[in-house]
Structures are given as structure tokens and as C-alpha cells.
Design a protein around this nucleic acid. Structure first.
Lengths: 239, 239
DNA sequence: GAGTGGTCTAGACCACGCA
DNA sequence: GCGTGGTCTAGACCACTCT
């Protein structure tokens, strides 16, 4: 347990160890972890130290704890992942579950912008997904998603893709999305927007540019969402 | 230390006690709290329990800790408050400090919408502030702010109002903003927007509807921001 | 060196879920 | 009733800051 210079607390080392276990797939989504006491004796530290590492992981939503039952590797299910990363809601605050239609999946080579967003080589193989999301049967969001083909081989075989893509990334490829960076702008509907969202040209749209980051810190996905904010709004809580 | 039914952990009770101290002004912004050991013996609990309460408060950014020095009541300064609640940034991610001009302060009676947003009686006295925020000398955000005159008596005497209003709320009135709810839409510039932001009518704008909540859970401020997202974007990180 | 927050331990007891 | 996570304690030592 020596450290060269930086001084990494014990509970941080325990954290690193457990994150590695999840990244490698030793502990998979939805599985229960060994009990705090078991982990403690296995790793030769006190239960309090394991607990502190788990506190951090629970705060990052990497694991979920249930008193009396155990600690689970967090799953990116419909409710959890969608409600966490899909921020569109009704003005009264009620969250909605969108439906996906008109999905198009195509292969290609990364453009300059795409390679920059995904931190991959220009020209590397990528997969582009376009789809429209409906809320209450009305087209509301037009999404363009770009991912590395190397990270997600043969993803087109999973078509039709699920509503919550992050769940597929996790269960089929062992890729856990832990956070996202988004930039929002206002823009006007162009031809493709107008067609997809069935709105007049020039309708004001909320333009969301999102990069999703995985557990290992790599850029996993670049997504552009063009949202019609007629009936839904983008909801943010800063705490 | 009895509890009627809900079972409130000791550290929660300690938390409540300390929040009350801050709300009442016994401990003011920027001051240092008693040491963990002192608090523990004063309250008749162990240091670990005080520590756990402070952990929660630090996570909520109510206090700041500095190893070797002490624990301080968090201050809403330019950097901290603006960078926390003002989300506009350059596309490369760099945060900016805006400047405020063309400020108008007026008194009035709460409309139905205002009373609903601020949870006050319709017709209650309110103060309305309009101002334009410049970034790089260019008008970028047109804000309309509504607050209860009862909560902030004689606020007009502080004109010109500071860039970080939350700092004034805290230091002059003892009101701590702890979180905000925002709803974002895309909209088109109307007459007043065009004039304030010096853009053509019909320019797409990011419309932000924000309610700020204080330490005691009350709605403190309602703010509408209309942002020109030509050079700046609204940045969100979901972690 | 004295005082502060940060880490770590060992052990006790409580609340919860389940068989 | 057992095993799990959740709370609480008491005490030790470490890292940081200031004098």
C-alpha cells in the first residue's frame, strides 16, 4: 500500500479496485456485490473503508444500495437512464417516456468534427443513427447519434435499437455511461428538421450537442438533438 | 434525542441544528464554524457524527472545508455563485463573467403567474428588475427578475445592483439560495428582445424560466432570461 | 508545535428484507 | 433469526496551515 508521491487514500484505492472489477465485467450490471464485510476481509481493510468507497460509487450512481438486501451494480434501465439523461419534461415537471420511430442506421468514416468529438482518428469507422422521438404520438426530438464502430461492432444487428441506447451499450458491450456534457443553443428548423418534426421551416428549436463519457473517461457517443419545445421543455435542477 | 415516528438519524438532527444556525444568521457567510471537536462536545455527540453532518452540508455547498484551517460558511461570491448558477459559456467550455447594463427597477403587485411562481398571494408587493447582460461588450442575455418586496425591503437602495444578485440576497438579507429549477425553451426574438439584444426580430433565442429556492425551501426569485446563443451556449454537465 | 480537517480502525447496535 | 446495509462511538494517526 505504498504510494510514490500523490498520496492516494486507502478508500480511493479500494474504489479504483472495484471500478476496475465493473469495467472488466467481473461484476455485471444488476448483479449484487459481495457484502461490505466480505469485501473488507478480502481486501484486508476495515468495513468503514469499504463503506466509504461505496459511498463515492453510490453518489456517482455506479452502484445502488438497498438496506437489508445488498449493493447492486447500477443498471441503465428505461426509467433510470432515460430519466437521468433525457431531460425533456412537461412544463408542470412531469417526466415523459418518449417512443422512437423512423430509425436509420448507416456506416461511414469519421469527419473532422466527429473525430474531434469522439477523440478518434479522422476517417475511423463510425456508425450514424438518425431517429425521431415521439411524445404523445407527436414528433418532438430529431436525434443524430454518432458512435465508434470499433467500440460497438455489429450494433446494427440489434435493430430496432432500444429507446434507452445506454442500456444496450452497457448490457451488450460492457460500456457504462457515467456522465455527459451538453451544450444548448436556440436555432431555426431547417428542411430535415421540418420534415422529421412536422413543423414549418423556421420554427425555433432547442439544439442540444451532447458528448457522453464512459467509466474509463473515454468519449463514447456524440449526439445532436433538435427539440421542438412546443409542449415539452428541457428541465434542469441545479443543487 | 427521541423521535416520534420518522426516525431521524442523529447526524441529521445535527445537520438541522447547524442549518438553523446559518439561516438565523448566528453563523454568517464567510465566517469559520467551531471545529468539529468543539461542536461534538458542545452537542454531546461524537466527532464522527458532526463530521457526517458536515459532509452533507459540504456536498450541498452550504459550507466549505479547508484542511488545516477550518470549516467556513460558503459565500456567494462572483466566481462561486455566478459559475454555479450562470450556465452560459463559450463553446470551448471556458466560463465567462458577464457585465450588467441598462438596469430598470420597478415596484408592482404580483400577477397571477408571479404569485404562482413565488408562492405568494396575488397582488402582494413585488419588485421587478430588468437588465441586459453583456459578454465581450456584446448584449447576450436579457433578464427579467421578480422578487417579493416583503422578503427584500428597500432593495432599490442598493442600486446599481451587483452582477451576482445571490450574493446581495445573502449578505444584505440573510437569504441563501441553495438550488434552482430551470425550464428551457427555444423562442423567437420579439420587439423588446430585439431592442435589448440588438438582434433582428425573429432571431432564435434560448428562453430560460428559473425559480430559485432558499435554504428554508421557500421560492425566493423568479427569473426569465432570453439568451442570444450566437457566441455563447448554455452548458450542462450531468454526473 | 498546536490546531484543524482527513483517514482508518474495531466494535456496538439499529433498521430492513427475507426465508 | 439471520444477513444486509445504516448509524454511532472512541480513539489513533496523517496531512495541512499558521505561528
Amino acid at each position: 500500500m505504498d504510494e510514490p508521491f500523490g498520496f492516494r487514500p486507502l478508500y480511493r484505492q479500494v474504489y479504483d479496485f472495484m471500478v476496475k472489477r465493473i469495467t472488466e465485467g467481473t461484476w455485471k450490471a444488476g448483479e449484487t456485490l459481495p457484502s461490505e464485510q466480505t469485501l473488507a476481509t478480502d481486501l484486508g481493510v476495515s468495513q468503514g473503508t469499504v463503506r466509504k468507497a461505496l459511498d463515492v460509487m453510490a453518489a456517482e450512481k455506479l452502484v445502488e444500495r438497498r438496506q437489508g438486501k445488498g449493493t447492486y451494480v447500477a443498471e441503465h434501465t428505461e426509467e433510470s437512464a432515460l430519466f437521468r439523461f433525457f431531460r425533456m419534461a412537461r412544463p408542470d415537471g412531469e417526466r415523459v417516456l418518449p417512443e422512437c420511430v423512423a430509425e436509420e442506421v448507416a456506416s461511414g468514416k469519421a469527419t473532422a468534427v466527429e473525430s474531434n468529438k469522439l477523440k478518434i482518428e479522422p476517417g475511423a469507422a463510425v456508425v450514424r443513427i438518425k431517429r425521431t422521438r415521439l411524445v404523445d404520438q407527436e414528433p418532438t426530438v430529431f436525434e443524430t447519434i454518432v458512435i465508434s464502430a470499433a467500440m460497438f461492432p455489429d450494433i446494427e444487428t440489434y435493430a430496432p435499437l432500444p429507446n434507452a441506447l445506454y442500456g444496450l451499450y452497457q448490457t451488450a458491450y460492457g460500456v457504462n455511461i457515467v456522465h455527459t456534457f451538453e451544450q444548448l443553443r436556440a436555432d431555426l428548423a431547417r428542411k430535415e428538421d421540418a420534415k422529421r418534426l412536422q413543423v414549418p421551416l423556421g420554427t425555433p428549436l432547442l439544439h442540444i450537442d451532447r458528448v457522453a463519457i464512459g467509466l474509463d473517461g473515454l468519449s463514447v457517443e456524440w449526439r445532436l438533438s433538435r427539440c421542438h419545445t412546443g409542449k415539452l421543455v428541457y428541465a434542469v435542477t441545479i443543487s
